[in-house]
Design a protein around this nucleic acid. Structure first.
Lengths: 243, 243
DNA sequence: CGCGGATTTGAATAGTATCAATACAGGTGG
DNA sequence: CCACCTGTATTGATACTATTCAAATCCGCG
């Protein structure tokens, strides 16, 4: 390899951005080299353990992030403590509500999470100057809206058994997007959420989630070891149970 | 009145656009006079009765619309017929999923509806040329996402009684956005949806919706006449029941 | 090995759906 | 103007699903 060769991938791009997924599939793909350099100056990589609150409901937004690794949950909490997870975000999603001063959801890490964090002010300035950047976020927002609407069907109209199957299918296809193309093969993954998180996502209790998982195991649809490790024997059999 | 006077509101703006709410509060506010003229050439005002399907799930998108009047429902249907309403849209909302070739929802009129309809191709060309236009749709999309997430809490975590109260509150505040500022006053409106639509929006059966409405009436929270006409005696008492 | 949190399992209960029958509203024709 | 008719909404009785409360078990970790 001739490392004097300079191409679009390493010429002036900051080192931290060079192999970054957010630049290839996330919002940073809309930034030119100069913008990348500028943003990377105020960027910080941060890691969090599971269950850490990143921002609370109605809290002022001071920064945005890209998710580098892990799963982040967005949730809403009623006064009496009832909680509903309203979204899950995966790498390389952009994290933050632009065009608002306050968050409308509680943002928490579900798994171990690594973020690439930058100040709202710097990013907002780039948003105003670079309409391709807003476009990238628009595309993600439309996808989130599609996903939210898909999930509303699950919440409103599916049985507990169908909800749990739908959740497993969602995780399986997020972990490996190509899995959908091989419906008769097996899928193996680790659940990034606790039973309590799953229950809050599905609008169920943890006991009901547990019972339905037990049933899926008894029916030889999945194998679950160590509470978190899931093997779906045939994805199509899981899909059949999603309603 | 001196009708030779020419100001920003009537100089070159097409007659059909001059008093249009979509130009003041909707997406057309992003268009300049020339663009308005161009778009209005291929624009058609159309009226529909309640219960008319405007576009089906997975159907190819040929046009977009602005809602001039009435209520449009977006829904999803499972193979076995179970249906979930995933969004309601009111004037002057923009109607259509940009950056997609197929609809991801079934779009139906809930009430009598008037649309201002234009071809996808014409509008898409303007979208590409005018980033302020995309920005307007971005703002609406973010609002829709916020609303979808609010509703996910209702679907996943509220009781039937709370769901019905939340629905009435939603309609009351949509019909009169200033109502929120006067929580101790009464609110009067007509339901734009049938009991079946309400049930599909709330993830309930029509019987349960009916029973909960009866209860709200018995508890002197609302008065309902002619099935559709609702008087909320004190909005704050309704809000108390939203969970 | 034993501790503490997470998960599973069990029994009783509550809430909503289902099925069936009745009442109501709005439109039509006599 | 009224009787009728049709679709919509309400009410009632029962079944079923998911919750609640309680207890047992599993898992990771020191």
């Amino acid at each position: 390899m001739d490392d004097t060769r300079r191409d679009i991938h390493n010429s002036e791009v900051p080192v931290v951005c060079q192999s970054c997924e957010a630049r290839h599939n996330g919002v940073c793909g809309a930034l030119n080299e100069q913008e990348l350099v500028q943003l990377s100056k105020s960027t910080r990589r941060v890691c969090h353990l599971p269950g850490v609150e990143l921002i609370g409901d109605s809290e002022e937004i001071a920064s945005y992030s890209n998710i580098m690794h892990g799963v982040v949950k967005l949730s809403k909490i009623l006064e009496d403590g009832r909680q509903q997870v309203v979204g899950l975000q995966f790498a390389p999603d952009f994290l933050g509500r632009i065009f608002a001063t306050e968050s409308r959801v509680t943002v928490e890490t579900a798994s171990k999470v690594e973020l690439c964090k930058f100040p709202k002010s710097v990013f907002d300035a780039m948003l105003a100057a670079n309409s391709e950047l807003e476009h990238r976020i628009m595309v993600q927002t439309l996808r989130e809206l599609d996903e939210a609407r898909d999930w509303m069907v699950t919440l409103g109209r599916k049985t507990a058994a169908e909800k749990v199957a739908s959740f497993l299918y969602l995780i399986a296809t997020h972990v490996d997007p190509t899995a959908m193309d091989h419906p008769d093969e097996e899928a193996v993954f680790d659940l990034p959420l606790t039973r309590a998180d799953i229950a809050d996502y599905l609008g169920l209790t943890i006991e009901t989630v547990s019972r339905q998982l037990t049933r899926l195991r008894a029916d030889k649809v999945v194998e679950i070891t160590h509470n978190r490790h899931v093997r779906v024997w045939r994805l199509s059999r899981l899909l059949d149970r999603c309603g």
